[in-house]
Amino acid sequence: MAFERRLPTRHRGAGLLAKLWLVPWSFVLLLCAVAAVGYVALYSAGGGAPEPYASKHALRFGFCLVMMLCLAMIDIRLIARLSWAGYALGVALLLLVAVHGQVGKGAQRWIELGPIQIQPSELMKILLVLALAQWFHRASWERVGRLLFLVPPALAVLLPVGLILKQPNLGTGLITAMVGGAVFWAAGVRWWKFALILAAAGGIAPIAYERLHDYQRARIQTFLDPESDPLGAGYNIIQSKIALGSGGLWGKGFLQGTQGHLNFLPEKQTDFIFTMISEEFGLVGALGTLLLLGLVVCFALAVALRTRHQYGRLVAVGLGVNFFLYIFVNIAMVTGSIPVGGVPLPLISHGGSAMLTTMLGFGLLLSVHVHRDAEFGATRQ
């Protein structure tokens, strides 16, 4: 397979050329295929025109693709050395959001850096993975088992999660916590520690529910009984289910989706883009889209298995889980399996921050793959 390629002897020590040889171009083509699905769906969401969604999607992907390949050339050991500095930058951006963030749809989640508007909570998930991987990457099995050794990385997870929940952004906050937990698990933390955390979370859940914002409680109540308010809080998910079911096996055809084009389907270019795909291309189109996204997750896990150093393995697992959770939460949301939470479908939904952070993660993943044989030094006892 492409990701198992090794350097020919004549290319060893050739620097940039050698690294380009190691880039798994089949994976790059896979990402292009996923982005192409997004372009087609956004072209339809724009009423059968490249504006206002599809053209921006293509430009963003092209820029991020170049950024991803440039990032893949950076030595993973340099990235490891800068991991905690990146984490500190992410926390600083979250604090900046709390002070000067832009308010949208009742939440304060965005900041403007010149002409660019970014959502630091999305970036923070990537930076958290790097920081946790740096903490665990040379720790022995015995050291990982010590409770005191786990306190600093646990606090490193809780700090950004708390700041994200404060915005408020419950969905991203929970995903950030789960991504951090995935790195803990991959590092060898014992299962019973996770069981204690889950038990504690279950104990405080009723208290946490009472402290949720009114709209967050309404989302949970709507999830349990969407028909109780079909023209209000339950409208989105009811229309989404109608669109999903109306597509049938083969769909209504490109640009023929009635729920989307007659504007019954809300946020069709972002949160509910998968519903548009299902309505126009049916079950076959929906499963084909999921297959492409699933192959991306499989590549991340394959990189983790084939990387010699612990830092790269942990980064690959964390980034793979992050991408999987994007997909799982979005699909579960639009099918009514979980409350609506405003999580986009990566590389397909319209949006700059999600595209940038997703491709940033893939750039780091490719850097792990290209430098999978790098030497990091001895394990710390």
Rank of each mutant, 00 (worst) to 15 (best):
L262D: 07
G318K: 09
L59P: 03
H369R: 10
A58V: 15
L95Y: 03
L347C: 05
L69C: 07
L127A: 09
I76E: 10
G188N: 07
M124A: 12
S367E: 09
F274V: 02
T270A: 10
Y43L: 11
M276G: 11
I116D: 10
L356R: 00
T379E: 13
P339N: 03
H137N: 06
L360C: 09
F254S: 04
G173A: 01
T357R: 09
L150T: 01
A201Q: 06
E122G: 11
A201L: 12
L198N: 03
A92P: 10
V37P: 01
G361W: 01
F323H: 04
Q239R: 09
H371N: 14
L17G: 08
A187M: 07
V151S: 08
R308M: 02
F323T: 02
C64D: 12
T172M: 09
K105L: 15
M73Y: 05
I118D: 06
P344D: 10
L293I: 04
A300P: 06
T357V: 15
G312H: 01
K56Y: 03
G48T: 03
L93K: 05
V99T: 14
L283W: 11
E375D: 11
L174S: 06
N330E: 02
Y39S: 14
T9L: 14
G318H: 08
V296K: 01
V23Q: 00
W192P: 01
E227Q: 13
E142S: 14
Q239T: 01
E122I: 05
L113F: 07
P50L: 05
G260Q: 08
